[in-house]
Simulated assay, not measured.
Amino acid sequence: MNAYATAPAAGRPPVRVRATLDAPLSRWLWLVKWILAVPHLVVLAFLWTAFVLAGLAAGFAILFTGRSPRPLFDFQAGVLRWTWRVAYYAYGALGTDRYPPFSLGEEPSYPARLDIVYPERMSRGLVLVKWWLLALPHYLVVGVLLGGLHLGWWGGTGLIALLSVFAGVALLFTGAYPPGLFDLVVGLNRWVLRVAAYVGLMTDEYPPFRLDLGGSEPTADAVRGGEPGGEPGPKA
């Protein structure tokens, strides 16, 4: 079964970030996740180098053909998906104690999921300016969220890591993850992932300057009406 749609369903954005808060969560495990995540971080350091190279190759292909080669797109999507799972486990969210799989593919049972629609056609002109000029405002936002521009979420001192540590402290003393804090952390990660897909030349849809909170994507009606709400999130 193909992991990616080739056309967006009605009302669905090209980049969909979903998460389910696991419960109960360990009070103390978050204190050592920086050690447990090291094997993933080593692998992801190499994968992100390859992600950048794949983006460059895709850019040339789009410039001459108007299409991103599907194997390159699938690889980039896999790197983002892997990164999101590790971030969700570690200090990008601390939303689960399930160790992330070493996988570029879909993992439907994992509580952090990322889906990106494969674009059949892409703008040849945008490929020249989207990743540096058009994305500049978002780079400023992402710099605040991650504590600088990172090829991943680890080692950051930005807002996302800070809020995740606050969640860890709450877990330590109360045994519960504050729901409002969870919604905010996932919303901030959603912003980062949308920008990553855009500057990675995986979509032509400009990332919205909108903080969509919670574990599920908002519906099109909710976005148009400015109301909270979204599609049902995946089950844990």
Results as ranks from 00 to 15, higher is better:
Ala23Pro: 10
Leu21His: 12
Ala220Gln: 14
Leu213Glu: 06
Tyr99Met: 04
Trp191Glu: 12
Gly214Pro: 06
Ser26Leu: 08
Leu184Phe: 14
Tyr198His: 04
Thr6Gly: 05
Leu72Asn: 13
Val169Asn: 00
Phe209Leu: 10
Ala19Tyr: 09
Pro137Val: 05
Ala220Met: 06
Gly175Met: 14
Ala87Ile: 02
Trp30Ala: 00
Glu205Val: 15
Ala61Phe: 04
Leu162Asn: 10
Arg121Glu: 07
Arg16Leu: 00
Glu107Lys: 12
Val17Gln: 02
Val192Phe: 06
Ser68Val: 14
Arg210Ala: 08
Leu140Gln: 06
Pro24Thr: 09
Trp34Phe: 10
Asp183Ser: 09
Leu56His: 11
Tyr177Ile: 08
Tyr118Ala: 05
Asp97Ala: 07
Ala220Gly: 00
Lys235Asn: 12
Ala236Arg: 15
Gly55His: 01
Val142Thr: 09
Gly143Arg: 03
Gly92His: 00
Gly11Ile: 08
Arg98Cys: 04
Ser164Arg: 09
Leu134Ser: 08
Trp84Cys: 01
Arg224Leu: 14
Leu211Cys: 09
Glu107Tyr: 04
Trp48Met: 10
Ala50Val: 15
Val32Glu: 02
Gly59Cys: 03
Ala220Asp: 14
Pro137Trp: 02
Thr203Leu: 01
Arg210Val: 14
His150Ile: 09
Leu134Ile: 15
Asn189Asp: 11
Trp153Thr: 15
Gly147Ile: 11
Gly230Lys: 12
Arg113Gly: 13
Tyr4Ser: 07
Tyr198Val: 08
Asp22Asn: 13
Tyr89Cys: 04
Ala58Trp: 05
